[in-house]
Amino acid sequence: MKSAMMPQPYRVTARREETADTVTLDLAPLAAPLPPYAPGQFTMVYAFGVGEVPISISGGENGVITHTVRSVGAVTRAVCAARVGDTLGLRGPFGAGWGVPAPFGADLVLVAGGIGLAPLRPVLDHALRERDRYRHVLLLIGARTPGDLLYSSDHAAWARAGADVRVTVDRADRSWTGRVGLVTALFDELWLDPGRTTAYVCGPELMMRFTADALRARGIPEPAIRVSLERNMRCGVGWCGHCQLGPLLLCRDGPVVGYDHAAPLLTVKEL
């Protein structure tokens, strides 16, 4: 039996610079592909000699895995610097995903803060592929500045494919003609059907808390609010103990959990 700690070689087949510090890589298997992923799952990405980081899967079909990676440390810097033709190691897919598909006729509300759009991308792709399955597909995107918006060239295509895409930034620049403010302010423009809505939320922890509060205030039950949490991960397979958040091992019980589980944990300082 092969150890869960052994990375599989993947070659970078495409590289797109999303923002000043964020890159999207398409990765194709050089040997056996990893098992199929569910939206919301992650892989452990290994950069030769530097280390390994957990990265949510942002898409990919037929064995290809797409990762959108923000450069914030030594390993993510090395991953972002990978060029087409370079090799990275992947393990996974690990963890509990978003739980799509949602029931027929549901309203989907995707709320993304910054890089948080990356793990939501497979949910959006699924919803647009099966657009007839759902009633409303809402995508609310928040970013610090217009320059921090991910996949911005795709936004118009998503809208054409049937998503209601609304974007806001914390700080505008001279080119920006859209909304300015927090992503939670977008709820003031909307009417949500509490009985039919499933929300998928990913972003900084504070943004997710405020978003969940706004959703709860509109009657959405906590289990229907799904959040993707982040803690230090060293192994991805439940051996290393780093990703504990109270009772949860986030690599195994998460990263996506219902807000009914997350709410009592996120308000405890330094848990």
Binding site: G49, E52, R234, C235, W239, C240, G241
Partner: peptide, 14 residues
Amino acid sequence: CFCTTVEDTTDLTG
């Protein structure tokens, strides 16, 4: 107590 971390190493040639 089972917690572990990982260490990455390279030789001098890289």
